[in-house]
Design a protein around this nucleic acid. Structure first.
Lengths: 343, 343
DNA sequence: GTGAAAGCGCTAACAA
DNA sequence: TTGTTAGCGCTTTCAC
């Protein structure tokens, strides 16, 4: 496939009557090499069309300066914030990022982990798929001393810290806010209860109800994929309920938005008939009318902290196992979709 | 950093009293190796915790089975569709994807190209950054016979085909639709006119106006970043105009949505006072009220076709230079935001 | 169906 | 400040 033979440091060395080592050092900006020699080397390298061979380098040095990231999907505002945060920190520390999507499939995630493993990532940051089960797929990495860190959707593992928000408190705050508005019959649209983020929010929902002396009704918790279709499907279910709920707490803004629209299209008034609150503070929550109340989620910060934590471990500055989890601040954001004031 | 010594095919070979060659073949499922030997090899590999060394393999074989993708950002619904399409095709053909973001910066893009180059991608697919200038940064790849293909935001290069939609026609259709609704004073909110996608849409806008006998007013073309802030800024500019425009065509749905909301918050009625049409058919266009008219953009298909094209070149099935560009179908989608019928 | 030998391009360790 | 030597782990080539 290649039209010309590759130029190596040996070719440059021969041309300049130097050793390959010197050329290697010169290209790496090693302080042991004189300015003059460096310039000669880089000039000839450019002239000869030399390109650095990452594979040979990695093979020899056994370091890749690459960090793997596995996420469910990149097409959410939250995730791209996280990635932006990680990228910035990694870049400044001279690490590359390999990003891959599990597309919410545990199988695909396992394949991605294996690929990362074979590509010898120095460390791995993961937000697990919807249906991921157990932590065994990470053992091969940990056994080789490759640190694994979870963020957002975490798993419990003694070796792997998690960067999270207080999901239970957030679920409590959201539910409590609806209760404060006078809602008495509140639906929680959530995700797989195996995922910490969703089960914690459910706990928060339950504790707020309990505190208000409202009995928990399991039929009022909808476990879904939290995508657009789920929002529409839930709306249809809600329309069949009697009595109608007077409040809905959805663990995802996009899902909430679709649910809301479907209900409004069917003549339901929001917030008068049903109050709504979402989660994540996605841009859509500001655009939709009524504007969607939600819980803020510090994506950029989460990405930065995760990357910083991992890199400081890789550089030997701070062992990653010294922390179990880091909890970031999240906040209730009240907008029109929940302001019904029925009291 | 690694706790144990790495297991190599030699270790497996020694243990099984075979040669490294045989082990390599066994792991690769080479037909020359007997079923029984294969099983012994894979079993011992697992037992010993062997992991395939991609670097050594790539170094030796001079192939990476990796395709690079450089895009402005991943956080749009359109781009994640494209990536999903590429990923599927690449996966099936046994290629890996390395994805990186230019974040709309030509400098970062150039760095990414270089990284891809050093990582010896077999081919590269690019949608260029907002301010990319010229094509020289791709020459190093082309000189080494690494094929480069553009999609969406393309550059003109005799060696690099582009996968696009008919942006001019789409711009024409959008503008024409507003004219058909009786708009006579139409703003076009677009991006850098160096980018084909935006200049072509501007051409379409201009030709529709010309056809309707409306004189072009350069003040009615806003060149912006097309992001959320741009939408808000444009709304503020529009509010200062006298007379107010009666139609707005925005080259991006998200930008359009933010512009629309800002105008509505200021008391403008849509579509009665100002009709709106966006571009891309993002999910937000369906959620916003009034629902946003737009131009559909076949992201998944674009990704699949781009990947298929590149891979068939890499496999020697069809030379990539035989095509200059592939134009996909896009369509006008009429929703409430443009239905003002002033005629 | 299996093996021996060579070398991909780089850098670590040691030497000068 | 620069050089020598060796070897990272794999696959290719040729041989049987």
């Amino acid at each position: 496939m290649y039209s010309e033979k590759e130029v190596t440091i040996y070719d440059i060395a021969k041309r300049l009557d130097l050793s390959a080592t010197t050329v290697s050092r010169g290209l790496k900006d090693n302080p042991a090499i004189s300015k003059k020699t460096k310039k000669r080397i880089t000039d000839v390298a450019v002239e000869m069309g030399y390109r650095f061979n990452t594979f040979a380098s990695n093979l020899r040095s056994k370091r890749t300066n690459t960090i793997g990231v596995i996420i469910p999907r990149m097409n959410s505002s939250f995730m791209s914030d996280v990635l932006a945060g990680m990228e910035k920190v990694a870049n400044e520390a001279n690490y590359n990022l390999i990003i891959s999507q599990s597309l919410e499939s545990a199988d695909k995630e396992a394949v991605n982990i294996k690929t990362m493993f074979n590509n010898r990532v120095d460390g791995l940051m993961v937000s697990v798929a919807y249906n991921t089960n157990g932590v065994s797929q990470f053992e091969m990495l940990l056994q080789k001393g490759v640190p694994v860190l979870f963020f957002d959707r975490t798993l419990d593992h003694p070796m792997c810290p998690g960067i999270i928000i207080d999901n239970q408190k957030s679920g409590y705050l959201a539910t409590r806010h609806l209760l404060d508005q006078g809602c008495k019959n509140i639906i929680h649209i959530t995700g797989n209860q195996e995922r910490n983020v969703y089960s914690e929010r459910q706990k928060g929902y339950e504790s707020a109800l309990a505190e208000a002396g409202i009995e928990l009704n399991k039929d009022q918790t909808f476990v879904t994929m939290l995508d657009e279709q789920a929002g529409i499907d839930c709306a249809e279910q809600i329309l069949k309920m009697s009595p109608l709920p007077d409040g809905v707490f959805v663990d995802n803004d996009n899902c909430a938005a679709n649910c809301m629209m479907k209900l409004m299209d069917s003549g339901i008034k929001i917030p008068e008939d049903i109050a709504f609150i979402g989660f994540n503070n996605d841009p859509i929550s500001k655009i939709i009318r009524p504007a969607l109340s939600t819980i803020s989620y510090p994506g950029v910060e989460m990405g930065q902290i995760a990357a910083r934590k991992l890199i400081s471990h890789l550089n030997g500055q701070q062992n990653i196992n010294s922390t179990n989890s880091i909890v970031l601040r999240s906040e209730l954001i009240v907008r029109d979709s929940s302001l019904c004031n029925r009291l």
